[in-house]
Design a protein around this nucleic acid. Structure first.
Length: 258
DNA sequence: ATGGTGGATACTCCA
């Protein structure tokens, strides 16, 4: 059976990280790469470089903040850039169907700090997302939801759960929102294959966090219950965080036997 | 000690 390899990576500026992305695509050769925080208006999207690397691209861009894109070996159809009922000018959502699989690339709001206006925006955003996922699952049996969720779901996903207790990215309401997404009908691909591994996808640029491995696992690949049994591998690739001028996030890669 | 670094933008916001 053929393998379908899909990855997510918050690149924190596609303009700065384009060389990393191109190197990584050549080395890893995924069928699909979903990226977040491109921070590019659509007219500045580096489409030629992506095409030269052998990928098609769709994108929903924004200057300075946010912005999402999907690079794919195969053609994409049924593109969407918004969640219904969520009037949001921020470009955080990009959906498409590829190889018969419904793909939803998300850049979930960060939330700033617990109790802030942005935190409320995040919780509301996740609530509306839940309703949308239910509708999508009615239409698409095989679905992958991936991206920067800005939530560390469990204690094992945090280098120091005591320090992070009640903090944004690890607060109970956010973790509940993540669990609610799973309850809708998804599974966390990384935990399917590594139930007890302490591995992270993001380290703050400050305080030498990467050197001290003070990280969180906040980037995820979820597969619908129908597709999850076909997930044969899911790994975090820490290597790009050691490269010169890295993103603060690293890629997560999942493989499906389809 | 309540910091720090990095990206984009324009003299500050966001993460």
């Amino acid at each position: 059976m053929p393998i379908f390899k899909i990855a997510t990576w918050n690149v924190n500026s596609l303009r700065v990280r384009l060389p990393h992305v191109l190197t990584w695509l050549r080395d890893v050769e995924p069928h699909v790469l979903a990226v977040q925080e491109t921070k590019l208006p659509d007219e500045d999207f580096p489409l030629d470089a992506i095409h030269e690397a052998g990928y098609t691209a769709i994108f929903a861009g924004q200057r300075t903040y946010n912005g999402v894109a999907i690079f794919s070996r195969e053609k994409t159809t049924e593109m969407i850039t918004d969640i219904p009922e969520l009037d949001d000018h921020q470009r955080r959502v990009l959906g498409a169907t590829i190889d018969g699989i419904r793909i939803l690339n998300l850049y979930v709001p960060n939330g700033e700090r617990v109790g802030s206006e942005k935190y409320q925006y995040k919780l509301n955003w996740l609530n509306k997302l839940d309703a949308f996922l239910k509708e999508e699952l009615k239409k698409y049996d095989r679905m992958i939801v991936l991206g920067d969720f800005n939530i560390a779901p469990e204690e094992i996903d945090v280098h120091d759960p005591r320090l992070w207790e009640g903090q944004v990215l690890f607060s109970e309401p956010e973790r509940n929102a993540f669990r609610n997404m799973l309850k809708v009908g998804f599974q966390d691909c990384f935990r399917l294959h590594s139930p007890s591994e302490k591995s992270y996808t993001w380290w703050d640029y400050r305080l030498g966090a990467f050197r001290r491995n003070m990280g969180l696992r906040i980037d995820h690949i979820l597969a619908s219950n129908a597709l999850a049994p076909q997930c044969v591998k899911c790994e975090i690739d820490k290597a790009p965080r050691t490269w010169e001028r890295p993103s603060d996030h690293v890629p997560v890669i999942a493989e499906f036997s389809i």
